[in-house]
Amino acid sequence: MWKFFHKLASPPHFYRLAPRFVLGFGVVGCVLIGWGTYAGLFLAPPDYQQKDAFRIIYVHVPAAYLSMMAYSIMAISAGIGLIWRMKLAHSVAAAAAPLGAWFTFSALVTGAIWGRPMWGTWWEWGDPRVMSELLMLFLYIGYIALRVAIDEIGKADKASAVLALVGAVNIPIIHYSVEWWTSVHQGQTVVGGKMAPEMLQPLLLNILGFTLLFGAMLLYRVRTEVLHRERRSRWVKAEVLQTVGAP
């Protein structure tokens, strides 16, 4: 078991092993999303209060969940990379950030589209979850900008890892402060309730499906990052010659 992980952490092994997982996760993820979305949009009964508008939940909640998940993956692997000086962990952190930013963006846009029929406005400054997601997007943008600004990859890894950890300490505080801010302002806007199983099931399918798809894209991006970090090594040269063709 340990040997397997040890091998996985070695870049060339990871590079050769990853495509299988990318393909597997991607295919299963797409199937689950297809099934879940179909069931959610056509089979699930309309909500008692929100009628059909609640169906946006089937893409909104997975995106919002993944935006948080990506940040925790990023922060944890940044910490691992900083403490144990593991290059692969830094690659994972670097790969998770753009994906997390995309899912955060998706959560904000689908949330805005949901807000239009429900709250009567595209953008509700008073909702703590909207504000949390927006600040999350800013944190991702800051992280990516810092990475882009530093040329030397080792330095970029470590500097952005410090930023990711500082951000991780701040996220609960940000969350708490926007909640306090809105509680002074007004109550929660959307009433949460228990979901019927035939509504919940497609949601769980979609969450699982999007997570798998995220995992596939993450592994794919980690491969690119590994390639970048190891570009001077012998195995990468061999790998590139094999794929691009000998010059």
Partner: peptide
């Protein structure tokens, strides 16, 4: 860009 989101609270 780095400091502003952290300074929000």
């Amino acid at each position: 860009l780095l400091v502003l989101p952290l300074a929000m609270p």
